[in-house]
Write a protein that binds this DNA or RNA. Structure first.
Length: 671
DNA sequence: TCAATCCGTATC
DNA sequence: ATACGGATTGAC
């Protein structure tokens, strides 16, 4: 009798690999089968595989542990999802090769969350787990993590009294309930402190919290606010900037339940906080919240799913409101948390638009800096009063898009409402979504028939401003060097959107230059994004009562500029969502993009059993030899669409089709 | 008639 | 992915 013929309990016992004939491996006595998710990128292998647990590994092979298994002849990493008594698998089971460590890094909650996110995004569990669980660091794992102290007592913050339902929201958190709110922060709000208030209220109920912010600067501000509010050692900041050891050490402190509050940039959405009571997303319109690795999930979506699954409260905040947040209000899933108009007016600076006026020529200094006269004056007054001036300039590199020459509304395709653009040097514009040529275009708003290209370029602004305001300090904050704070005192601070430093005492004025460049980008979210960037700058300016003044270089008749002037982002979000609903854009519908070589995309879609409701747009060329198809379904069919795309990807990968096809659900770049 | 190679399928 | 099996091809 050979080793191969040994059997036990109906399950074949394999011979121990590498030790033929010596000391047969015995399976664990109880729950001898481990269900394992293998770390492979192949969609058709996105399901658990069963392995026998060697008796010697019985104690270490806990659910959530990292394991190594032999899979199709090679050793691969995986996670032990659960221990069960028997396997459904007909064939023989292999033994786990090794339990890497008994640390249960994958909690049941995060495992369930990752599966749900993968399913929604037409991705694989392995892809999501790679984002959710940081790489192991053995030294960090050996070190003990500090024991948690008692839940801190909460001191209700009077600052939330400025919001209609602020005190009620915090009281509900402190009482252990899970209210869900879309929070529109008042202009100038010290938002890190308000988030810290909410986290403290939640912590006082004995529950944990996860907070996600767009970038490292926001994280630093929040980190300081939480340290002040909660005291030392009560929270951890998880950021990519940490080394692997420190990152894993902090993450483990969360996983082991020693720290109940985790804050960070987008990867922190998966922080395995125990007893989750609250999730917070700040400024969910910022595209830094989108994970650039497959399956390209958005921090907001992940945290909303997580809150739903775990019964946690939600605080979705910003100085503006996304169409997605508006949808949550529209369905009643979340409630608004905003200040009354009187508070808004008292907090906001005076905001005025200036168009493409020609009176620049009257003022030589202003003309040299391409500054509208009103902007020049506002800056001068602020400097004279001893306050810094923020100058926001768009980043270069936006794609030139097409607008109506008369009313400047973005030019849209008559067939599918996609944006028009000139591509490949052609004279006739075409739709970036469905590719139709639009030779006989006419504007649906004003009937105009002429198009104009919006071009951008603002590099020398700082130098030019230096000439316009001789003797004034000019600081720049942008891609190369980002300033987090500037001191009080007269100075010009030139910054690109998202890199605006906080000024001590607030800016006396802000100039939002070349607003058209932001507004006319060929992007579904261009206007919403312009409002978001402007409003984030406005939030750094003093209230009108203290002389705060903002000049926005855009047409005051445009609704999005109106929303800025009136500090009414809620009104704009309602409009935006209504418009997208009418045109059939996300979030009113679910969309997916399929990008790759033309033949690969065609093959892929031929395989996919799309829901009946699916609407296909395209193909349109993307880059060198790739093209893209857009798929559109009602939201109710979003799951079915994702499932169909995942299945098609599975068939393709099983057939060893190598030409890559990228699938993205609700792609953010809807060019 | 047998071996080298191709293709399809399963991977526990 | 990789590994294996069964079919297919080609040379002796």
């Amino acid at each position: 009798m050979t080793d191969d013929q040994l059997s036990l309990g109906g399950v074949a016992t394999p011979r121990p690999r590498g030790k033929r004939g010596r000391g047969a491996v015995e399976p664990a006595e109880t729950l001898s089968v481990a269900r394992v998710s293998v770390d492979l990128p192949l969609p058709h292998l996105d399901r658990p595989f069963d392995y026998l647990v060697p008796a010697t590994a019985d104690a270490d092979a806990v659910p959530g542990a990292r394991v190594r298994v032999r899979f199709a002849g090679q050793l691969v990493d995986g996670y032990l999802l659960e221990r069960v008594a028997a396997s459904d698998h007909g064939g023989r089971l292999a033994f786990l090769e090794r339990v890497v460590s008994a640390e249960p890094v994958l909690s049941a909650e995060i495992g369930r969350l990752a599966r749900e996110i993968a399913d929604r995004a037409a991705g694989t569990l392995a892809d999501v787990l790679r984002l959710a669980v940081p790489p192991r660091h053995a030294r960090a794992e050996k070190a003990a993590t500090p024991e948690p102290g008692p839940a801190p007592a909460d001191l209700p913050s009077p600052a939330w009294d400025r919001y209609d339902t602020g005190p009620a929201y915090l009281a509900a958190l402190a009482a252990g309930r899970s209210p869900r709110a879309v929070w529109t922060a008042l202009p100038g709000e010290d938002w890190p402190a308000r988030v810290a208030d909410a986290v403290a209220a939640c912590a006082s109920s004995g529950r944990g919290a996860v907070v996600v912010v767009p970038d490292a600067r926001d994280l630093d501000r929040l980190d300081a606010a939480l340290a002040a509010r909660l005291g030392p050692g009560r929270h951890v900041a998880l950021s990519a900037a940490l080394g692997p050891e420190e990152r894993y050490r902090r993450w483990l402190a969360v996983r082991r339940g020693n720290v109940r509050v985790a804050i960070g940039t987008r990867a922190a959405v998966f922080a395995p906080v125990a007893d989750l009571g609250l999730v917070v997303v700040w400024d969910d319109g910022d595209d830094l919240h989108i994970e650039p690795r497959a399956p390209y999930c958005h921090a907001r979506e992940v945290l909303l799913v997580r809150a739903q699954q775990s019964g946690a409260a939600v605080l979705l905040g910003g100085f503006t409101r996304t169409a997605e947040a508006q949808q949550l209000l529209g369905t009643g899933w979340a409630r608004p948390l905003a200040g009354p108009r009187a508070e808004v007016r008292a907090a906001a600076p005076r905001i005025s638009p200036v168009g493409d006026d020609t009176d620049n020529a009257r003022d030589a200094a202003a003309a040299s800096a391409r500054l509208p006269t009103a902007a020049w004056r506002a800056a001068r007054e602020s400097l004279n009063a001893g306050a810094p001036v923020l100058v926001q300039v768009p980043r270069r590199g936006y794609l030139p898009s097409l607008n109506c020459e008369r009313c400047r509304a973005p030019a849209r395709c008559a067939a599918c409402q996609g944006p028009l653009a000139l591509s490949g040097g052609r004279a006739v514009p075409s739709c970036r979504w469905c590719g139709r040529l639009a030779g006989d275009w006419s504007c649906e708003h004003c009937g105009g028939r002429r198009l104009r290209a919006a071009v951008v370029g603002a590099r020398r602004t700082a130098e030019e401003l230096g000439r316009a305001f001789p003797g004034v300090v000019v600081r720049t904050s942008g891609r190369e060097e980002v300033l987090s704070r500037v001191p009080a005192g007269p100075a010009l601070v030139v910054a690109t959107p998202g890199a605006e430093p906080v000024a001590d005492g607030g800016y006396g004025a802000a100039l939002l230059l070349d607003g058209w460049a932001l507004l006319t980008r060929a992007d579904l979210r261009a206007a919403e994004e312009a409002l978001r960037r402007w409003s984030n700058a406005v939030a750094l300016v003093r209230p009108a009562a203290r002389g705060g003044r903002v000049i926005v270089h855009a047409d005051g008749a445009v609704p999005v500029v109106q929303a800025l002037i009136r500090s009414d982002p809620g009104w704009y979000a309602e409009r935006e969502l209504a418009e997208r609903t009418e045109l059939g854009f996300p979030p009113a519908v679910r969309m997916a993009s399929v990008t790759g070589a033309p033949q690969a995309v065609a093959d892929f879609l031929a395989l996919a059993r799309l829901p009946e409701s699916a609407d296909t747009l395209g193909p349109v060329p993307v880059g060198e030899d790739a093209e893209r198809m857009l798929l559109r379904v009602p939201r109710a069919d979003g799951r079915a669409l994702a499932a169909a795309l995942h299945a098609a990807a599975g068939v393709r990968s099983a057939r060893k089709e190598t030409a890559p096809v990228r699938v993205e659900v609700d792609p953010t770049e809807l060019l």
